[in-house]
Write a protein that binds this DNA or RNA. Structure first.
Length: 236
DNA sequence: ATATCGATTATCT
DNA sequence: GATAATCGATATG
């Protein structure tokens, strides 16, 4: 019997078989009981390491009994006070306070008068650093994400636009500063977290960061190459 | 398919 | 008062 591949258009079948072997589920798209919430130690490192390791993990939002899940396919590292492109570059302020706090907390900021962007803090308490989430591949709760975005997902193209780009993924997950900024993503009580379901990307690629003017040459964007949910790409 | 441009506001100078 | 870690609509090839 051929494996069910819906929802994982770019995932090799071999990997799907391995994932299912552990979960005893018929459909890989379903929420796996093996989702392990990432702990503090995961984030207590430099943003480059956290960025690389976040690829392939799953962002999870719990809304009552409804779960939203999407795989991380694109992130960017922002290094803190030594990084001219980082919000922390000019020192600690009211806005960027979370970046200077303990690791594993949500940093949410507003951009271009329109969009929320979602980050997680890295490095020990007192040292700024973070990772910006730029693109996700939807796994679970797609109709709820579509409703949050105010769009339909009748076509392949519309599905891609659900969680491609930092503003879109934040909207799909209902992420706002009021609701989520400063939230401890490692707390069992948090309704927003990152999880490991055993998936490991075959390859990771780095490029320059998108949309910045300072330190524009540093290769701090991390992607799963070939994934169709990456931002800044043509739509077939 | 690619390019350009307007929207809209928190934050900092 | 200028800028920004973006998006979506519109115009043009």
């Amino acid at each position: 019997m051929a494996p069910e591949r819906r929802g994982f258009p770019t995932t090799p079948p071999r990997r799907l078989v391995m994932m299912r072997a552990g979960s005893h589920r018929l459909h890989v798209n379903r929420h796996s009981p093996m989702l392990q919430r990432l702990k503090r130690d995961f984030y207590d490192r430099d943003p480059q390491s956290v960025s690389r390791e976040l690829l392939g993990k799953v962002l999870v939002r719990r809304e009552g009994t409804q779960l939203l899940e999407a795989r991380v396919v694109e992130v960017e590292a922002y290094l803190g006070e030594g990084d001219p492109a980082a919000h922390a570059a000019a020192g600690r302020t009211a806005r960027n306070d979370v970046l200077f706090g303990p690791p594993g907390h949500a940093y949410v900021y507003f951009i271009y008068g329109n969009h929320w962007c979602f980050n997680v803090s890295c490095l020990p308490d007192g040292i700024a650093g973070g990772v910006l989430f730029r693109a996700l591949e939807p796994v679970e709760g797609i109709p709820v994400m579509a409703r949050a975005r105010g769009v339909s997902v009748k076509t392949d193209r519309e599905l891609r636009l659900l969680t491609t780009g930092p503003g879109r993924l934040a909207e799909a997950f209902g992420i706002t500063r009021e609701r989520d900024n400063g939230k401890d993503l490692t707390s069992p009580k948090s309704d927003l977290w990152l999880a490991d379901d055993g998936f490991r990307p075959e390859r990771v690629a780095t490029t320059v960061r998108i949309g910045i003017t300072k330190a524009a040459e540093m290769p701090l964007r991390y992607v799963i190459p070939g994934n169709r949910f990456l931002s800044g790409q043509k739509i077939g």
